[in-house]
Design a protein around this nucleic acid. Sequence first.
DNA 1: ACAAAATCGTTTGGTTGCTAACAATCTCAA
DNA 2: TTGAGATTGTTAGCAACCAAACGATTTTGT
Lengths: 166, 166
Amino acid sequence: MAGAHTLAETERQVNERLAGMTIDFKAMAITSNLFRAATAVRNHLERTVLAPHGLSWTAFVVLWVVWIWEPIETRQIAEEGGFSKATLTGVLSTLESRKLAVRKKSKDDGRLVLVELTPAGRKLMQELFPEFNQQEQFVANAVDASNRDDAAEVLRRITKNIEENA
Amino acid sequence: MAGAHTLAETERQVNERLAGMTIDFKAMAITSNLFRAATAVRNHLERTVLAPHGLSWTAFVVLWVVWIWEPIETRQIAEEGGFSKATLTGVLSTLESRKLAVRKKSKDDGRLVLVELTPAGRKLMQELFPEFNQQEQFVANAVDASNRDDAAEVLRRITKNIEENA
DNA sequence: ACAAAATCGTTTGGTTGCTAACAATCTCAA
DNA sequence: TTGAGATTGTTAGCAACCAAACGATTTTGT
């Protein structure tokens, strides 16, 4: 899936292990390289941008989503960020304790909680996001400029296929 | 980064939010689609294959690595899987308690722990992995057959760029 | 109008994730 | 040979992660 051995080495060893089975190595290469790349990129962004600001990946995603769409309901943040409402409860508590975000009860629906950034939270995002985008550029540099739209499109198709056919 | 809004909607809203800042939207599209795809694929594989067998993603990765390379040292498993030795300690405890893997002290170096699968662990992987690969095929179907090597190569380049230049 | 069903965010319990610290063990340099 | 330095897996403490359960609220169907 990731690490120390190359995919070729893994393939050879898998062949030994799975004598007689039919394995689609091209499909395996797509998924394992997808995870490798996503992990490497995430680690890189965490190390270079988020950790110096004391933020976890998820805390950053929450801050980003709230920053772009505030005020926003917690269920929407969870959906946008791709994690559960239960997880969001914990992360929001952390962000509230750090005075970066606040929860407000919805006036229209007694079940809902709305989230906004504090001025400190907004200031942090204004400072942080250009750095983040700069490192996104570093990441994207590995892809030919003429190929970036295609690369993004392939990834988009992978996601869409799952959302529509799974 | 993920979720309910399209990237175009996000881009529009970001433009409003970030009036005056220079944002590389192509780079952003690469990274955000990478995370979306990796999350979608991982969730899909977890839901269709791993959860029915009561396995977490990381437990599966550990089982896979041990299955392919056993007997293997714990530090190698952690490196191969891309997580910390501390995390592995917890996951191995879970797998041992489920009688899928065993730890053995190394004869050559008193610090090392070697891991092997139990017969039940091997049986599970033999049953599980073809299912997993089948869903990998489902995932890869979103990519044109003529384009799969290129797609894997782009992802490989993204990872390599970070490993070599960060 | 009213009860059942659905939805919400939080809590609970268990697991995964990390860093830092630690004891045990090995390696290296003097 | 011996002590310093490096490496190992585990522990401790904290945060993130989930599903299930829960109380509060809203929606739906009769």
